[in-house]
Simulated assay, not measured.
Amino acid sequence: MKKLVAYITSAYPEKSFSIDLALALGENGVDTLELGVPFSDPVADGPLIEKANHKALELGFKFKHLLEISEMVAPKVDTLWMGYFNSFYQQDMDRLIPLASKLGVNGLIIPDLPHEEALPYNKLFKSNNVSNISFVAPTDSEERIKEVVSDAQKFIYMVAYTGITGSGQAEDLQPFLSSIKKHSDTPVYVGFGVNAATAKEKVKGADGVIVGSAFIDIILKESLSYSEKILKCSELAQIIKNEIN
């Protein structure tokens, strides 16, 4: 069974909505939830997620909201934090990683923390049973792929193309996938540009997909009530889960 990872922006439009949505997604095909930490300059994210980030910050997002959401969600849905390194570093990593573990958060996704700069934190992550998710991109050399994935935990985040999330650009991922799997038995999940229309093609040869912008597109629609947003996101999760399997 191939896995579905869903990204949502924490506390947008409000904390209680994020909790209700996260739990609903967990009941409708989502295997792992990425709780996004709103950040002012989300360089790896497309315009939809960037917009949701900015709106969350305008509405007063604080890091404590992420912790409160996680406390309610992580015991019931496999939960990761996705954010930019500055957001985590400001919280003091030596304090934050044990706290994540205590809350039941199983890993962090930090797109702007290169492999080499993450190495000093390896012991901290491992001693608390929290994964630091590894990224590989099409621009990486064979040698670098081997180095990055040699100790990958939970899953490898395979960037589907060189760019930002949400664009849905098509390309042949099979040679890239083969080079990753040659060096690691860790599951490989495809991210960037995955939606209901592209999921079936993108998951070929991979073990799962990561979907963000397609959910955020629904959450941003002001014409929908909270319950309608949750229903549509749940339906989308079911569709994508069926498509990839």
Results as ranks from 00 to 15, higher is better:
A52G: 01
P98D: 06
S225M: 05
G46H: 02
V194G: 07
P111E: 03
K3T: 09
G191I: 07
L231I: 11
W81T: 04
L231H: 10
D151W: 07
D20V: 04
M82V: 05
A22T: 10
Y161W: 02
L21K: 00
T186K: 13
D172C: 06
L67F: 13
T79S: 12
S18K: 07
L48W: 05
I219S: 03
T198R: 01
Y157S: 10
F135L: 15
L25H: 08
V209Y: 05
V194Y: 03
I145K: 11
K232R: 12
H65D: 15
N245V: 10
N53R: 02
A44I: 01
N129D: 15
I19A: 08
V136H: 00
I210F: 06
I164V: 14
D78W: 04
Y121T: 04
I109L: 03
E14I: 07
Q153S: 14
S16K: 14
Q90H: 01
Q169V: 15
I145F: 10
I216M: 11
Q238A: 11
D41C: 11
A137S: 14
K62F: 03
S131I: 01
D41T: 06
E243W: 02
L224V: 09
K241Q: 13
P13A: 09
Y157V: 10
P175S: 05
G191F: 06
L80Y: 13
T139V: 12
G193V: 11
N245R: 00
E147L: 13
S40V: 07
I239H: 00
A206Q: 05
V209H: 02
V136G: 01
K55T: 09
F155I: 12
A44K: 00
Y157C: 10
E68S: 09
N128I: 11
V203E: 10
L35W: 07
S179H: 11
E71R: 13
K221Q: 15
S134F: 01
S179M: 13
S178Y: 10
G168I: 12
F192K: 12
Q153G: 06
G26K: 09
Q90M: 06
A6G: 03
S70L: 08
P98M: 07
I164N: 01
A6I: 04
L113Q: 01
K146A: 15
F88K: 05
K202T: 09
D31Q: 03
I210S: 11
K182A: 14
L177A: 04
G166Y: 08
F215H: 00
S184W: 08
I49Y: 04
Q90K: 09
E50P: 00
V148R: 06
M72L: 14
D45F: 02
